[in-house]
Design a protein around this nucleic acid. Structure first.
Lengths: 344, 344
DNA sequence: TTGTACGCGTTATCAA
DNA sequence: TTGATAACGCGTACAA
């Protein structure tokens, strides 16, 4: 910085004013400084800037160590941050020491704020960050969201829309399959709970039959689900799935049993990566998860908060987009026989 | 830090010695300091440390902005870094301004070094980082790797093994499908090139028929590939795929045409996420990509380099593990009819 | 509009 | 084994 100042015949502070655009500088001086910066290839030192300004221009993405698929919203959040002059740092946390992770994140000054992934209905990180006065935005929602910034998928609206779409096609008996995360590190993870609740409410309001299955992760859940339908809800004509892995096992099992999708059974999957649904045979009608928007918006929300440009809580609910195809959805078959477990 | 020193009745330097373990400190003093740290909840300020020590303890993960699926090796790299006292910062780069990104990365002092993803055979970032004297490790390989640290999948060995496995089962005519990245931002991306080369070499050495298809991304490539086989290599009895999306389209198309996998056609996919292969019907035999190991090892390599504990270039080639199932592989059918394009 | 000088919270050098 | 103190590179209050 001193070299730049020397070369431009100004003081070091004038360089700072230009670099940060913090005070008016005459056009000529500015030009000389910019030229010197360019010629010397000067970049301001991030640590010194952080130390002096008390802002790191870094935001942390906190997620459980066990989560292996960060997917698109991470890259979207990183891209949005970069566009706004921030960097995204990965902050994996063990389930049990989230406490100390939060503290060190805040007190070390590494990051100005945090984005929280995999939010549970009751999430201890929220109270900790709040106590520490650390700005944060949830990618998801806790049960009580009073005064908390969050950006989340609108599972309620999406579920209601999916039920509505099926009801209009004459389906009377619906089933829902969600991931069961009891006993996993994600116990209390909210999407399944919210979706189930909306599903139950909306089917009840419409007087439709409703069967709900909570199944563990993995494609085997799909076959298990098919069996459960045979056993407990053989009259089901349409399925809504929040269980990505199960979709494959389900369509494959159905095919083997001669159940035609969508003629005999309609399937809709919600908040899933669109490309995943397209890989099934037949392709599964998908309310695609707004991953890019979720990542981008949450980063933008946090940065807005950091820059103090927001007063009110930022609470964004993003419904999934509407399906781009109806490949696995059809009118309810009037007189379809109950589902059976026999392979062809 | 001053408060800690006061409370422990020592000087601020002694606190530093304890915190960084840089100089011997008597057990009693150390204990007093640690207690004071604990009681005050002190954490050292990252920016100040970086400024004074000239090390940020941050490493950057550079990847093209277009890459949407960071997947498991990102989380593995982040986890390994955290374990070693480093943090991983995401560093998306536009294809065209990689130059300035590299420069700012190095000169800003934000990161001590970089991990490079999506390495091309000729990658401009390498020369730039080298010129800037910035430590880096490639997750992948350039064509010329003299003196460069890298951790990469051993596509050559894996391809050779896959060809060998099929040859031993009596297959005479093999086909390979890879992603065609000509005209995409990933043009020059190495895995496809290396795999193709090894495939051609190994089949030639064994006197086997070899057909190669380079196809664009997306599941539609699978059906296209099936058509290409019918047209150009109808006697193919086994397929090797480096094209994840195509696998689904391929098995689904084959099923519709009455081609049974693996009775009529064997399929092996290499360097793919294992869970993806399991979603096909039938499940595709997979040489799973060593994603976790790749991420972990590359972070470890970079940190070793940063800590000066390595002299020689770190060059790690990791073959894919062996398939855990042979669900889509069988003995070559002696007298199978040539493939046709007619649906059942 | 520009310059001076102090402080940010550490690490590292040197002396005790 | 410990302590005093000078950097580290920048932002900013205040002065000019």
């Amino acid at each position: 910085m001193q070299q730049v100042a020397d070369r431009a015949n100004v003081s070091i502070s004038t360089v700072s004013f230009v670099v940060n655009d913090t005070k008016p500088v005459s056009p000529e001086t500015r030009a000389r400084i910019l030229q010197a910066i360019d010629e010397l290839g000067y970049r301001r030192n991030a640590a010194a800037r952080t130390l002096a300004s008390r802002h790191s221009h870094v935001i942390a993405l906190m997620y459980p160590l066990s989560e292996h698929h960060l997917s698109e919203f991470v890259t979207a959040a990183a891209a949005a941050s970069a566009r706004l002059g921030y960097r995204l740092i990965l902050w994996p946390t063990h389930g049990d020491d989230a406490a100390s992770e939060v503290t060190s994140l805040v007190k070390s000054g590494i990051a100005d704020g945090a984005l929280l992934m995999e939010v549970k209905l009751e999430d201890e990180r929220v109270a900790m960050l709040r106590d520490a006065d650390a700005p944060f935005v949830l990618m998801g929602r806790t049960r009580d969201t009073t005064g908390i910034d969050f950006v989340d998928v609108d599972f309620e609206t999406t579920t209601t829309q999916a039920v509505g779409q099926l009801a209009r096609l004459g389906h009377q008996d619906l089933a829902l399959v969600v991931e069961d995360n009891t006993d996993t590190p994600l116990a209390g993870y909210a999407p399944a709970a919210r979706t189930e609740q909306s599903f139950v409410a909306e089917t009840a309001a419409r007087g439709l039959g409703a069967y709900v299955a909570r199944l563990p992760r993995g494609p085997a859940a799909g076959s298990a689900f098919a069996d459960l339908l045979v056993q407990h809800a053989p009259d089901t004509t349409a399925v809504i799935s929040l269980h990505n892995d199960a979709n494959f096992g389900l369509v494959n099992t159905l095919r083997r049993r001669g159940v035609q999708v969508p003629r005999d059974l309609s399937i809709i999957t919600i908040s899933a990566p669109e490309r995943l649904g397209a890989l099934c045979d037949p392709p599964i009608t998908t309310y695609p998860q707004p991953a890019e928007e979720l990542g981008r918006r949450s980063a933008e929300a946090l940065i807005a908060r950091l820059q103090g440009s927001e007063e009110e809580p930022i609470q964004l609910l993003i419904p999934c987009e509407h399906p781009s195809s109806t490949s696995s959805v059809a009118t309810a078959a009037r007189d379809r026989a109950p589902l059976t477990g026999a392979d062809l």
